[in-house]
Nucleic acid binder design. Structure first.
Lengths: 242, 242
DNA sequence: CGCAGTTTAATTGTCTGACATTTTGTTGAC
DNA sequence: GTCAACAAAATGTCAGACAATTAAACTGCG
C-alpha cells in the first residue's frame, strides 16, 4: 500500500484509490483484514476522519465490510452475484433515466441481448424455470391487473428466460438491460388487446423453450421486439400530443 | 428528505440511503444543489463528520459531485456513459476474479452477447469502426508483441465491433462482459499459431462487417468462440499439470 | 455611472481530541 | 476446571477549530 504525494486536495479519494487498487491487483485477499483506522492514518500520514471517509467510499462500492469490536476492523469483502446484480441494476437505471435514453435504443439493446440467451435457455432450462415462466404468464392473464404489476410480471418472466441459460455471468449482465427498462415500460398504458398479444407471444416463447426449439423462441422474441417497439412509439406519440 | 430513527449504528449509511433514494425517486434533479453539510447535519441531527461520510459514500457511487467555495456544495451528478461504463467494468472484473468464475462460463457469456451485437454492427458500422478494427488486426499481426498487448488489442477490436452497433446502451452493457474477460485471457499464453488463427478469424469478422453480411460475421464469431474456449481449456490443463 | 480590484463570506477539506459502543480476550474467584 | 467480571481494542460518533477555495459583494477610481 503506497503513499500519496502532497497533491492538492481530496486525500480521502487518493487513499480510497490506493486501497482499491490493492484489492483489484490482488495484494489484498478476500476476507483479509486491513490495518486499523489509526494505523492507516499513521501510514498515510493523515488524520483518522480522512481515513474513515476513504473507507466509507470503499464500503459504498461493496469492496469492504467493517466490523466493530476488539477483533473488528475493515475486511475485504467478497463481491457476490446478488450485490453485484443490485449495483448493476441501480447504475443502469440511473444511466437510462438521467440521460433521456430513447425507448427504441433501450428496447433494441434489451431484446438483442435477450435473444442471445434464448438458444442457451432452450438447451438448458430446468423445469423450475419453465414453471416460473408459466406462472408469470398466468399472472399476466388475470383481469384487473394494474399496469405496474403487469410490468413486474413481464420482468419476472424475462428474468426466468435469462436464468434458464444457467450462466450466472449472463444473468448478471442481462439484469442491467432487462430491469433498467422497467421505468420506461411503466410509461406505457397496456390495453387488454396489448396484454393479450404479449401473453400470446410469451406463451409461444415458453412453448419453444419447453420444446427446446431455439429457432421458434428466436422468432417469437423477434415479434415481441417489434411489438414492444411499436407500443413504445405509440406511447411516445400519445405523450407528445398531450 | 426524511429523518432516521434512533436505530443503533451506521447513521452515515442511513443518511446516504435517504439521499440516494431522493435522487433515485427524482426528488433531487440533476445539477441540483444539496443543502450544505452544516444544514444537513442539522436536519438529520448528527454531526458534520457523519454527514461527510454519507456524502463520500454517494460520491464514490458517482451520484454527487462536490465543489468548494462560496457557491460550492454537493450537486447531483449526471451519470454519464463513461463513468457508468468504468463502474460496470470494475464491478464485473471483481465479480469474476473474486468468485472463481470458470473460463467457459465467462467466455460463453461474452461471445453470446457479442453475437447479439454483430447483426446490428453489420448494418450500421461506420468507416471509423471498420478502420479501428483493421488497425487492431494489424497490431495483432506484428511479431514480438507481448501476450498482454495482444490481449489489449483483442479487447480493442471487439470493442470496436460492439460500438459499431451504434447503440450506447448496448456498448455499456457489453463493456462489462468484454473487458472483464481480460484478466482471464491474460492467463493464456498465445503461440504464434494461436495468433495467426485469431487474426484470421478477426479478418473474417471485419470482412463480414464491411460487407454488411451478418450471417458471415455470426459464423466467424461462432468459430472464434469455439477456438477461444479450446485455448482456455488447454491453458487450464497446462496450469493444473504444473 | 461603469468597471476593476479588493474584501468578505460561505463552504468544503482536514485536523485534534474526546467519548460511546461493541466485541474479544484475559484474568481471577470459586 | 469453569464461569463471570473486567480490560483492551476497534469502530462509531461528536464537538470545535483552522485552512483552502471560490463566488459574490463592496469599494474606489476614472
Amino acid at each position: 500500500m503506497k503513499i500519496d504525494p502532497k497533491s492538492p486536495a481530496d486525500l480521502s479519494a487518493q487513499i480510497a484509490k490506493a486501497i482499491r487498487d490493492a484489492i483489484l491487483s490482488g495484494d489484498l485477499i478476500v476476507d483479509e483484514r486491513l490495518p486499523s483506522e489509526a494505523e492507516l492514518a499513521d501510514q498515510f500520514d493523515v488524520s483518522r476522519p480522512t481515513v474513515r471517509e476513504a473507507l466509507k467510499r470503499l464500503a459504498a462500492q461493496n469492496l469492504i465490510r467493517t466490523q466493530r469490536g476488539a477483533a473488528g476492523g475493515a475486511f475485504v469483502r467478497r463481491l457476490g452475484y446478488h450485490e453485484a446484480r443490485a449495483q448493476h441494476i441501480t447504475t443502469s437505471t440511473l444511466l437510462l433515466s438521467m440521460n433521456a435514453v430513447d425507448f427504441d435504443t433501450a428496447c433494441e439493446a434489451r431484446f438483442a441481448l435477450e435473444r442471445a440467451c434464448a438458444p442457451l435457455s432452450a438447451e438448458r432450462r430446468s423445469a423450475d424455470h419453465l414453471a416460473t415462466m408459466r406462472a408469470e404468464i398466468h399472472r399476466q392473464s388475470q383481469p384487473g391487473l394494474s399496469d405496474e404489476s403487469f410490468c413486474d410480471s413481464d420482468v419476472a418472466f424475462h428474468r426466468a428466460l435469462v436464468d434458464g441459460a444457467e450462466n450466472p455471468v449472463l444473468s448478471y449482465q442481462l439484469a442491467g438491460a432487462v430491469e433498467a427498462m422497467q421505468p420506461l415500460m411503466n410509461m406505457i398504458t397496456f390495453t387488454q388487446r396489448n396484454r393479450d398479444m404479449i401473453v400470446g407471444l410469451h406463451t409461444r416463447i415458453a412453448d419453444a423453450i419447453q420444446a427446446r426449439n431455439a429457432a421458434a423462441a428466436d422468432a417469437a422474441l423477434d415479434e415481441l421486439t417489434a411489438y414492444t417497439l411499436q407500443l413504445g412509439n405509440d406511447a411516445m406519440v400519445a405523450r407528445e400530443k398531450r
